Amino acid sequence: MSDGKQRILVFGATGQQGGSVASALLAAGWRVRALVRDPASAKAAALRGAGVDLMQGGFADAALIRQAMEGVHGVFSVQPSSGQGPLLGLSDEEEERYGIGIADLAAEAGVRHLVYTSTAAIGNEPTGMGHFDTKARIEAHIRRLPITASIVRPVTFMEMLAMPGFGLNEGRFSFLLRRDQRMQVIAVEDIGRFVAAIFADPARFGGTTLEIAGDAVTGRELEALFSEAAGRPIAYARFPDDLLAADPFLGKLAALMDAGRLAGNADLQALRELNPGMLSLRSWLAGPGRKAFAAALGDAGKWDYGPA
């Protein structure tokens, strides 16, 4: 357990997963260091105000990363992938290079515990999608290193469901799963709580891969939950077949959903014992996700999650 003195280096602390992890670690009594590109940004200032030790740098700054790893107990590694769109993500090649590089530097520095965040879509066979398969190769590399490491594989983020472009502003919602198909989802807030629990118990979680989720819903249940949250009917339908055929990115995602690889296979009961307060989609819509969902109801913007 944390004694309130050990330090964790968190990558991506101004982003979704890294920010969630930094917050959860601070709440659990860890000291947190973060590598940020712009220490003057509002998000960096908020981290500093919360007590995070900031160092300016990026994924390509190997010398600075070595310096940031000096004296730390653990490292949380996340890289923005190409699947997050051209404004946020790295190329597939950069993601793989930086993910492997951070792991190598952590092993070199004698870091006691490395936690890497991957994706639930990974299996024994490649997916054919770069931003998934890069993570599989990073995972494989980490397992060969002389370091205590844990890998978390989050399922689809609840936050992604509240992005513009799915039709909520038109009283409908289109997505990848069929009406009676079930998929697991997770609130980004809970990723940090799971990672904090993993850092707190390296004897249990060292050398393990843990798929994490917070809820499971069908297309019909999405329709009911979104209608309830919106206070008016929201009709659900899978993306039309002609769209899936015309858009290779969405088509491959739909195929992975049908194959079960994107749907998620986390043990929700066991995860609830690890994180008793984990959010269901209903509780997320009523709480942390309420503002984003309300914005999506009135936002006619374009969905921008995948490559253009």
Rank of each mutant, 00 (worst) to 15 (best):
1 M>S: 14
2 S>Y: 05
7 R>W: 10
9 L>A: 03
11 F>S: 00
13 A>S: 10
13 A>G: 06
15 G>H: 06
15 G>Q: 05
20 S>D: 05
31 R>Y: 04
34 A>D: 07
42 A>L: 11
44 A>Q: 06
46 A>Q: 14
47 L>M: 07
48 R>N: 11
56 Q>C: 12
72 V>G: 03
74 G>E: 02
76 F>G: 05
79 Q>N: 11
87 L>I: 12
94 E>A: 13
98 Y>G: 06
102 I>A: 13
107 A>Q: 08
109 A>F: 03
112 R>G: 09
112 R>V: 11
113 H>T: 09
113 H>D: 05
114 L>Y: 04
130 G>F: 09
143 R>K: 15
145 L>V: 07
146 P>Q: 03
149 A>K: 01
150 S>I: 02
157 F>L: 05
163 M>P: 08
165 G>V: 03
172 R>Y: 06
173 F>Y: 15
174 S>Q: 15
183 M>E: 04
190 D>L: 02
191 I>Y: 03
198 I>M: 02
202 P>F: 00
207 G>C: 02
208 T>H: 04
212 I>H: 07
212 I>F: 10
214 G>I: 00
215 D>T: 08
221 E>L: 03
223 E>Q: 10
227 S>A: 00
230 A>G: 06
231 G>N: 08
231 G>F: 06
233 P>E: 04
240 P>N: 06
245 A>R: 09
249 F>G: 09
252 K>Y: 03
255 A>C: 06
259 A>C: 09
260 G>F: 01
265 N>L: 10
266 A>M: 07
275 N>T: 13
278 M>Y: 04
279 L>W: 04
281 L>S: 01
292 A>V: 08
293 F>I: 10
302 K>I: 15
